[in-house]
């Protein structure tokens, strides 16, 4: 006997069910006074709430927060009248956007071809040995995050490492840990 699908049945509990979902995406909790939110709001206005400006607005949010918190994402989703899954799929497609905090300080090791040929792997190994961090990981206190990039375009200076926003040229593996410590210590 074949089972008939309950396709067009109306679920009595549906109303309750949706209310529960609204709390799962807490839009009203948004701190409107946060200056970073104002930045995003201004950008949204500048782009006149056009859905095709999604990536531009995500850039603004990513720069303001360093990552994309869920509250911010749902705010953008509502403002642009886009389906949530559409926003989430765009965010996860691009390397630039991150859903998790990348750490207060970042150490970005370039693994483009030129840097790879010149020993980017040795630098990564040294970071793992010295600090116990693999690419993509963040220290427990969220102080430092290690990432890799597919070519930052500084191939003449290979192997290159970007500490916060400063490019370190021709980095020797043995000096990388020292450089990182100096950076975190001074800041």
């Amino acid at each position: 006997m074949d089972f008939e699908l309950p396709l067009f049945l109306f679920n009595k509990n549906a109303g309750e069910f949706y209310m529960k979902s609204d709390t799962a995406v807490p839009v009203k909790d948004m701190p409107k006074t946060d200056p970073r939110m104002k930045l995003i709001a201004a950008k949204l206005k500048k782009e006149s709430f056009k859905p095709d400006a999604l990536i531009e607005i995500l850039h603004t949010a990513q720069n303001a927060y360093g990552y994309l918190p869920k509250e911010v994402l749902s705010y953008i989703t509502k403002a642009l009248h886009l389906p949530p899954s559409r926003v989430y799929s765009t965010v996860t497609f691009y390397h630039f956007f991150s859903l998790k905090s990348k750490g207060e300080h970042t150490c970005l090791v370039c693994t483009g071809t030129a840097c790879y040929v010149k020993g980017a792997q040795a630098i990564l190994n040294e970071i793992e040995r010295g600090l116990g961090l693999k690419a993509g990981q963040v220290t427990a206190d969220n102080k430092l995050g290690v990432q890799v990039a597919r070519c930052i375009g500084a191939c003449g200076l290979a192997p290159a490492v970007v500490l916060d926003d400063e490019v370190q040229a021709k980095v020797a593996p043995e000096e990388i840990v020292q450089k990182i410590n100096a950076k975190i210590g001074t800041l």
Binding site: P51, I55, H59, Y94, H95, F97
Partner: peptide, 22 residues
């Protein structure tokens, strides 16, 4: 501004990206 995807160098992908999509 590109958001870090090599495939966006392909013209139809680039167009999708300018339209604000994957």
């Amino acid at each position: 501004i590109g958001a870090g995807a090599f495939v966006c160098g392909e013209e139809t992908a680039l167009i999708a990206s300018i339209e604000g999509k994957r």
